[in-house]
Design a protein around this nucleic acid. Structure first.
Lengths: 112, 112
DNA sequence: TATATCCGCAACCATTCGGTTGCACAAGAG
DNA sequence: CTCTTGTGCAACCGAATGGTTGCGGATATA
């Protein structure tokens, strides 16, 4: 199933999972020991993180290691940059106006 | 009310609002014209974005302009960086092991 | 082979979410 | 003052969320 990465990291438990996985890949059982919820609840979170390609399962015998797909984090970074860029160009536009005004200040009287 | 910024940007409509607000501050009515949902639904989104300090309301008479609080975006960026940093230091640790092994390669036979 | 372990799936449940409609109130416009 | 406009708030509703428990299947272990 396709899923939204922003919706995936909305839950604080899932963000903690991503952080842990960034340090070291783990199995669901190992992971569940870090939380106070049931193993199945952790598995649900892993499923969601896997569906949006933030994690990738790597079976090792009867165990399954979930590995972080760090490249998927860029999707979040791109949105962030888009916001920041728009926000700053908004100021740049204002700066342009001010610079133009300042440059023409000596002519302002004649222009108005 | 205090709110989680990650939960706030989980909804695609709210992300679109943030992007629009990054370009130009708007009133709820102006904003609602960009979407196919009701004005009240947009107002709900504005409330959530305001509660997590991503937007700040600026009353102008009977109108209210919502202005982006761009600094709040850093909270997301910090989490991202924390993930990336852990992820890369994970590789660095592996690199250290490999480098050490390679340096000692000539002695491996004696060490084992 | 029998048993224990690791894991995902399904059913269920309370709560939250995102949308709607209707209403009340404050501020300009006539 | 009256009317229109911009806004927030409350009630309601179906769907999604995050948790639980119980089960079955596959893999190691005795």
């Amino acid at each position: 199933m396709r899923r939204d990465v922003f919706q995936a990291i909305a839950d604080p438990t899932r963000r903690a999972i991503v952080l842990l996985m960034a340090v070291q890949a783990m199995t669901p059982n190992q992971l569940a020991q870090h939380f106070s919820i049931s193993r199945q609840a952790v598995s649900k979170h892993l499923r969601i993180l896997t569906e949006c390609r933030l994690l990738q399962p790597e079976p090792r015998g009867r165990e399954i290691y979930y590995v972080l797909e760090a490249g998927k984090l860029d999707e979040i970074g791109q949105w962030l940059e888009q916001c920041r860029k728009s926000w700053e160009s908004r100021f740049n536009q204002l700066d342009q106006v001010l610079i133009t005004l300042q440059a023409n200040q000596r002519d302002t009287s004649t222009l108005l």
